[in-house]
Design a protein around this nucleic acid. Structure first.
Lengths: 337, 337
DNA sequence: CTGTTAGCGCATTCAC
DNA sequence: GTGAATGCGCTAACAG
C-alpha cells in the first residue's frame, strides 16, 4: 500500500507547528494557568491550522480516568428504562461524561455480570445498573469493588447505593384514591413476579387495603404487556362485584380498558381503572387514564450525582435515594355506585 | 495517603506469576496460535488467581481500534429512536462492539457537530447518526472524513451511506388500502415539518392520492404528540365529508381516536383512521389501530453492517439501504359508507 | 512561564 | 514456541 495515508496530527505536530514543546500544547488544551497569552494564541492557531483533535484514549491511559460512565439496562424499548436512561445521559453529559450502554436481551445474573466486566475492562469510571429484576439484582451481590456502581431500583447488597422511585407509596396513593371514592376494595393486575417494581406495587396495594381493613382479592398476574391487561380485563368483566382495578402499568391498563370496552362495561361508570407510569399516551386513552407519574429525570440526576461522588471521594457512605411519585387523576376513576 | 491502595494487576503481574514474559500473556489473551498448551494453562491459572482484567484503553491506544461505536440521537424517549438504538446496540454487541451514546436535547446542526467531534476524540471506530431532521442532516454535509459515519434516515450529503425505512412507500400503502375500501380521499395529520419522516409520509400520501386522481385535502400540521392528534381530530370531526384519516404516527392517531370518540363519531363506522409505527399499544387502542410496521431491528443490523464494512475496507461505495415497511390492518379501517 | 524526562498497559516488530 | 525491545499519544512530575 502507498504510505500517503494522512495520519491524524498529534500533539507533537502541533508543538512543532507552534514552535513550543508538546507539553505546552497539553497545558493549553487543559486550561492550565501558567501559559503566556501569546503562546496560547500561537498554539491555538496551530491547532486549528492542523485540525488537531486530542486523543482521549491516550489521556485516559495516563490519567486512569476515561470520563465515561457505563449503563447496563434491560430492554431499553420499554418506557421506564428508556426514560431513565435518557435522564442518566442528560445528567452525565451535563457533568462532562460520556455514556456507554449495554442493553441486555435476557435478564439473568450472568448477563449483568458479563456486562459489568465488559464495561470495567473498557475503563469506565462508574456504572449505573438499570436492571430491576431480582435475578439481575442478585448479580450485584458479589462484585469486585474496583468500579463504583449505583443501582436503579433496589438490590439486595447493602453496600451499593440505590436510587429508586417509591413504588410502594405510588401504589398506596392509588388505593387510597380509590377507597376515598367509595370503592369497597381494589383488584390488581400485577407485573411479572421477578420485577422489583411489580413487587413494590403489589406490596403497596396489599398493605393499603389491609390497613383500611378491606378484603384483598387475588391478584391477576400480568407481564407489563397490553395483551396481559386485556386478558385480565376479560376476566374482571366477567367477575362479580368488581368496581375498581389497579393495573401495575399503563400498558396493561390500556388492555384492561380495551377488554372492558369490548364487554360493554362502562369506565368509570361501572369500573374505575388506574395505571402506573404516566406514559405520554395515557392522557388520551378512552377514557383518559388516572395513573402514577414517576420523575425519571430526577432518578437520572441522582444516579450521576451519587456516582460522581463515589468516583471522586472513594467508597463513601451507602445511600438509598427514594424519589416520590405523584398521582395524576384523570377520567378513568369515579365514585363507586 | 498510605500506599496500600490495591493496584489492579496488569499483564506484567500475570507474567511474573506464571513465570513467563508479558508477551506470552498477551498471546494467550488474544488467542495466538503459537503457545504451548501447558504454557497457556499456566497463564490462565495465573490470570484467574490474580483476578486480572485486561485494559482495553491501553489496547486501543496501540491498536488504534477501540471496538466502540458512537451513536448520536435525538430524544431517545420516542418509540422510533429508542427502537432504532436498541437494534443498533444488539447488532453492535453481536459484532463485539461497544456503543457510546450521545442524545441531543435540541436538534440544531451545531449539536450534531459537537456530538460527532466528541465521539471522534473519544476514539470511536465509527458513528451512527440517528437524527432525522433536516437541520441535523445538514450537519453531516461537511464532516471531517476521519471516522466512518452512517446515517439513519436520509441526508443531503452524497458520500455518507444511509439506512432508512421507506416512509414514502409506507404512506402509499396506507392510502391505497383506504382507497380500496372505497374512500373518496384521505385526510392527513402530518408530523413536524423539519422531520424527514414527516416529509416522506406526506409525500407518499400526496402522490398516492394524485396518482389515483383524487383530490388532496389540506394537511393538518402536527408534532407527533397525542395532543396534536387530538386537536386535529376535533377539527376533522367538525368537517364535512371526512371519511378517512391518516395520522403520521400512532400517538397522533390515538389523539384523533380520542377526539372522534368525544365527538361521538364512530370509528371506523363513519371515519377510518390509520397510524404509523405500530407501537405496542396500538393493537389495543379503541378500536385496534390499522398502522404501518417498521422493522427497526433490520435498520440497526444494516447500520452496523455498513459501518463495519467501512471501518474494515475504507471508504467503500456509497450506499442507500431501504427497508420496506408493512401495513398492519386492524379494526380502525372499514369500507366507506 | 516553559522544556525535559518518565511512564500509563498493551501489541508489534524482531530476535532466539 | 518464547522473550526482549520499542512506541502508541498523552499527562505528571521535575527542572530551569
Amino acid at each position: 500500500m502507498g504510505s500517503n495515508k494522512h495520519r491524524m496530527p498529534v500533539m507533537a505536530d502541533v508543538a512543532r507547528e507552534a514552535g513550543v514543546s508538546h507539553q505546552t500544547v497539553s497545558r493549553v488544551l487543559n486550561d492550565h494557568p501558567n501559559v503566556r497569552a501569546d503562546t496560547r494564541a500561537r498554539v491555538e492557531a496551530a491547532i486549528s491550522r492542523l485540525g488537531y483533535r486530542r486523543n482521549l484514549v491516550a489521556r485516559a491511559l495516563v490519567t486512569r480516568r476515561s470520563r465515561t460512565l457505563g449503563v447496563v439496562s434491560f430492554d431499553t424499548t420499554l418506557y421506564g428504562p428508556a426514560s431513565t436512561i435518557y435522564g442518566i445521559q442528560q445528567a452525565a453529559r451535563a457533568a462532562g461524561y460520556f455514556v456507554s450502554i449495554v442493553s441486555l436481551k435476557t435478564i439473568d445474573a450472568e448477563g449483568v455480570r458479563d456486562a459489568i466486566d465488559y464495561l470495567t475492562e473498557q475503563g469506565v469510571d462508574g456504572i449505573v445498573v438499570v436492571a430491576p429484576q431480582h435475578s439481575a439484582s442478585r448479580a450485584l451481590e458479589s462484585l469486585p469493588a474496583d468500579t463504583p456502581v449505583v443501582a436503579v431500583e433496589g438490590t439486595h447488597r447493602a453496600d451499593i447505593p440505590v436510587v429508586c422511585i417509591d413504588q410502594v407509596e405510588g401504589a398506596r396513593l392509588v388505593v387510597r384514591h380509590l377507597l376515598e371514592l367509595g370503592h369497597e376494595t381494589v383488584w390488581h393486575v400485577s407485573g411479572p413476579s421477578d420485577w422489583l417494581e411489580a413487587e413494590g406495587r403489589m406490596e403497596g396495594w396489599r398493605s393499603a387495603l389491609e390497613e383500611a381493613g378491606r378484603q384483598v382479592p387475588e391478584p391477576l398476574a400480568g407481564d407489563w404487556s397490553p395483551r396481559a391487561g386485556y386478558e385480565a380485563g376479560k376476566i374482571l368483566a366477567a367477575s362479580e362485584g368488581v368496581t375498581a382495578v389497579f393495573a401495575a402499568n399503563d400498558q396493561m391498563a390500556l388492555g384492561v380498558l380495551r377488554a372492558l370496552s369490548e364487554e360493554g362495561v362502562p369506565v368509570p361508570g361501572r369500573i374505575s381503572v388506574v395505571g402506573f407510569d404516566d406514559i405520554p399516551e395515557s392522557e388520551f386513552f378512552s377514557p383518559p387514564l388516572t395513573t402514577v407519574r414517576q420523575d425519571f429525570g430526577a432518578v437520572g440526576r441522582h444516579c450521576i450525582e451519587v456516582l460522581l461522588r463515589r468516583i471522586d471521594a472513594g467508597a463513601g457512605s451507602d445511600e438509598r435515594l427514594v424519589v416520590p411519585p405523584t398521582l395524576v387523576v384523570r377520567s378513568s376513576t369515579a365514585p363507586a355506585r
